[in-house]
């Protein structure tokens, strides 16, 4: 899934990087939401992530959305000196529902940016408020279509019943998909249905455009934007599954970037109650190298020595 790099990285105290849309080929990636999916590396530190990124990036003629554009070596670029970097601290990323302890941890990291040659100020991207519904409507719509191929004819699971195509297809989906997947297929199917597509899917596309424009405007003033990666601290597996809306809302800080196809990175910036907190840096489209360069400097400046702590499971 689209946000399953930065947020898990943030929850685990490691680095997660989502490159610009099109820099890493999606050929071979099992599609969830094609226009939002982007493969990205997770690693112990920015340098590892940059090295891995250097390996997986590049033009692929099998992916029509692949950028035919050589951005150069990310890992070699890490050591470049940075100066006069303008940073926008995005107000909306510290909005309602954000854990205060996360807020202060991220702010500490932001202040440290000054020591590495960055100047920051608070800025606002008003349409980010609408990122969650826009993201989920688009993602679910695309997913409802992408997941239709699992019919058990060419590969995969097939329900063991003797009946006609319609019955076997339904039963296969019934048995093969989990509850949350079914919920998303249903919502996505709904959002594309004649009579509702205007209010949901098409509306979401328009809002996506507004969010993209918000970012464009911001990047005229700033080199990077920052905020927390997640509004909440890591939670237990399965804890939120019964409240889907609550679960979707946790993606509030990560999904705007996917809607706009921008590069973003999450790196650990502190610990609260023994749980890691991530700071997210976002750059303009195709500014991936600059982003990794700044992230690398910030990582060195923060100089966190996170040690994994083994805790007994439930």
């Amino acid at each position: 899934m689209a946000v399953s790099v930065r947020q898990p990285a943030s929850f685990c105290g490691v680095v997660g990087f989502k490159p610009s849309y099109g820099l890493v080929s999606r050929y071979g990636l099992i599609a969830y939401a094609c226009s939002l999916d982007q493969i990205g590396p997770i690693g112990k530190n920015v340098r590892d992530v940059a090295i891995l990124f250097d390996v997986i990036k590049g033009y692929d003629k099998h992916d029509s959305t692949s950028l035919n554009f050589d951005i150069g070596s990310a890992s070699a670029n890490l050591f470049n000196e940075i100066k006069d970097i303008r940073v926008g601290v995005v107000k909306e990323f510290f909005g309602e529902g954000t854990d205060e302890r996360i807020e202060s941890t991220v702010w500490n990291a932001v202040k440290r940016l000054e020591s590495i040659g960055c100047k920051y100020e608070i800025t606002s991207l008003p349409y980010l408020e609408y990122a969650i519904p826009a993201y989920y409507i688009i993602a679910m719509s695309e997913a409802s279509s992408n997941l239709a191929r699992y019919d058990g004819v060419r590969y995969g699971y097939r329900a063991d019943i003797e009946s006609d195509w319609n019955d076997v297809f339904s039963k296969t989906r019934q048995e093969g998909f989990g509850l949350e997947v079914k919920r998303r297929i249903l919502l996505g199917t709904f959002a594309l249905t004649a009579g509702y597509i205007d209010q949901y899917y098409l509306k979401a596309l328009q809002v996506r455009k507004l969010i993209q424009d918000d970012f464009k405007k911001a990047f005229k003033k700033y080199d990077i934007l920052v905020g927390p990666t997640s509004p909440v601290l890591p939670f237990k597996i399965g804890e939120k599954i019964s409240d889907p809306l609550e679960m979707y809302r946790i993606d509030v800080d990560t999904v705007p970037v996917n809607l706009a196809g921008l590069p973003a990175i999450s790196l650990p910036c502190g610990v609260v109650s023994g749980l890691p907190v991530g700071v997210q840096l976002i750059a303009d489209f195709k500014d991936d190298l600059k982003l990794l360069n700044i992230a690398y400097k910030l990582e060195r400046e923060l100089n966190l020595k996170l040690k994994p702590r083994v805790v007994a499971g439930d």
Binding site: R26, A31, A33, C34, S35, D63, S64, T65, S141, E142, S144, S145, D164, N166, T189, L192, T193, A194, G195, I197, Y201
Partner: peptide
């Protein structure tokens, strides 16, 4: 035909894998 999708049930949307 038993399955009776009509034109308005096809949920057309732009193919995101193409430009």
């Amino acid at each position: 035909m038993r399955s009776k999708e009509t034109e308005q049930d096809y949920r057309y949307f732009p193919e995101p894998d193409l430009v």
